[in-house]
Amino acid sequence: MTDEQSHPTGTLTDLQYARIDYARRDLDSARAEDLAQLDAAGLILMVERLRGRLGDVLDLVDELTDLHQ
């Protein structure tokens, strides 16, 4: 299935589903991490990764709401 095709269970493309899956995996990883054990650099990297994923998911929401207006 290509990115332009709808996913059989909804209106999201495979690429959109992958973007959501990446965000969920990064969030699960951050939740599982013992933050007290991370040094400053590790915390910064985690925040930057999550910030990027949040931005991507918000872009995805914008894409989807633009399509349905």
Rank of each mutant, 00 (worst) to 15 (best):
14 D>S: 15
67 L>F: 08
1 M>I: 10
6 S>P: 09
51 R>K: 14
19 R>P: 03
34 D>A: 02
20 I>F: 05
51 R>F: 03
49 R>L: 09
56 D>H: 12
42 G>N: 06
66 D>N: 10
18 A>F: 10
27 L>E: 06
43 L>H: 12
15 L>C: 03
35 L>S: 08
32 A>S: 15
28 D>R: 07
7 H>R: 00
65 T>K: 08
55 G>S: 15
53 R>C: 12
35 L>H: 13
42 G>T: 04
41 A>N: 05
28 D>N: 11
17 Y>K: 13
67 L>D: 05
34 D>C: 07
10 G>V: 03
68 H>V: 14
55 G>D: 13
65 T>Y: 03
4 E>N: 13
65 T>G: 00
41 A>E: 14
57 V>Q: 07
22 Y>K: 02
28 D>G: 04
21 D>F: 10
57 V>P: 01
6 S>K: 05
15 L>Q: 10
38 L>I: 06
68 H>A: 11
55 G>C: 04
1 M>F: 10
47 V>P: 00
63 E>V: 01
17 Y>N: 12
1 M>E: 10
38 L>G: 01
21 D>E: 14
5 Q>I: 04
53 R>A: 09
4 E>R: 00
8 P>Q: 02
52 G>R: 08
49 R>E: 13
61 V>F: 05
24 R>F: 04
68 H>E: 12
48 E>V: 01
18 A>R: 09
46 M>E: 06
31 R>K: 14
25 R>G: 05
39 D>A: 13
63 E>Q: 04
34 D>I: 01
29 S>N: 11
56 D>T: 10
50 L>Y: 12
39 D>K: 05
65 T>Q: 07
17 Y>H: 09
55 G>R: 15
64 L>N: 01
48 E>M: 01
44 I>G: 07
54 L>C: 07
12 L>T: 00
26 D>G: 00
59 D>P: 00
2 T>R: 12
7 H>E: 11
53 R>W: 03
60 L>T: 01
47 V>F: 13
61 V>R: 12
9 T>E: 13
47 V>T: 13
